[in-house]
Structure formats: C-alpha cells, structure tokens
Design a protein around this nucleic acid. Structure first.
Lengths: 99, 99
DNA sequence: TATGAAGTTGTCCATTTGGACTACTTTTGT
DNA sequence: ACAAAAGTAGTCCAAATGGACAACTTCATA
C-alpha cells in the first residue's frame, strides 16, 4: 500500500524514482552522482571566470562536451575528469574513501 | 644535456618516463593516477578483511576485474568506482576540487 | 532590438570499459 | 609438501565514452 503523506526527501525520491535496488532507481542514483560532479566543475569554472569554450580548449576537448558534462552527463571516465580539472581548471582533484 | 645526479622524485620520473607534455609522459601520469586509485581501493578492502572475490560479488563484478583495478588498471568510469566503494565496500567516495 | 558571444542539443563513430569466463600462479593453512 | 584459497592474466565483445562538428537557443551589451 502506497504512503500518501510524504515526510522526507528520501520518501519523495522513493516515490518518484522507485525503491532502492530496482534498476530504475540505480539509474537515478547514478545520474544524480554524475550531476553533482557536473555542478562541481561548473562552480569551479565560474569561479575562475572561464567560458565553457576556454575550459574545453585547455582540457583538449570542445565546448559541447563541457556543456553536457555540466548539465547532462550520465558518466565520466576518471582520466577525463582528472584532465579537465588539472589541465583545464589548473586545479587538483582530491579523492578519498571513507569506510 | 642529461643530468646525472638525480635529486628528486620528479627528476627521476622525468628521466624514466620522459618530460611533461610528451605523449609518453601523459600516459605515464594517467596510469599513475589510476594506480593510486587502485591502491586506495586495495587498502580499503584489506582494512575490511575482504577478499577480491567477496568485494567483486557485492559490487556486481568479478574477482579478475578487482585484481586489474588494484594493480593494472588504466582508467575507470566514475560510476564503476562509486559502485565498488558503495556497494562493495559499504563506504563513501569523496570528491573535491581545489582551484 | 540587433549582433555576437555563450551555452545547448543532436548525430556520427573510433576507442575504451568492464562483465564473463578460463587458465594460470602465488599464498596460506595443516 | 599438498590442497585449497586468493590473486593474476588473457580473451571476447556488447555497451558506453567522448571528440568532432553543425545547428540551434539564450544571454549580454551597446
């Protein structure tokens, strides 16, 4: 039986994207992670006052890819992310794992 | 002219892998980053006292892939990394960008 | 409100990832 | 030293990434 009174964000997401473990929900979660990554890149780019085209040039790609990365992207290779941050933004990518 | 008395790690890497900007060196740098990632995963796995096979099972892959990830890997997708850490290790991947 | 800059969207396709499987080597425990 | 467990290495290939380009929309500023 369906809950009617949603009380939390996770309830809302369960409602909209399906429950955890389903294929639909996995896809949703994955895309949400990629989306957050895109936002990070966009913020860093804007802080540096660069256009997508300038960033693309330095990172060895093109502005359409940067646009997709910032708002559309499903997934990205580690090396591509690394290259955009290092060569493109002149920054550093920090990765850590918490267990 | 070639330096003979190497004083730093970066000199050593220049010597062994070629100078920055060359294609050979870029490949080296890329693989080194992936290698560091592999070490992170391996450490986390060992801390949890898991075998490659157990980790693989939970992460929805197989032990040969985990082995390659830990010692061999050239590149990895963000979603794959995420899945191995979250589903496999029950941990969290933290990403940040310093500019 | 017109013009150019910035950003978005779509398609094409060569290259790469990674899951599945098998066989082999190394390590561990008795 | 033997057997089992753990890890490494290789191949196959469906599916995904991402570079290139063109066409389109939105935004800024004069």
């Amino acid at each position: 039986m369906k809950k009617k009174n949603l009380t939390s964000l996770s309830d809302f997401i369960d409602e909209k994207a399906g429950l955890k473990g389903t294929k639909k929900r996995d896809k949703y979660d994955k895309e949400f992670e990629a989306f957050k990554l895109g936002v990070l890149i966009q913020q860093a780019r804007q802080e540096k006052g660069m256009t997508q085209e300038q960033l693309a040039e330095l990172a060895g790609t093109n502005k359409s890819y940067i646009s997709k990365l910032e708002k559309d992207l499903k997934d990205i290779r580690f090396s591509t992310l690394q290259r955009i941050i290092k060569d493109g933004l002149g920054g550093q990518l920090h990765i850590s794992i918490k267990v």
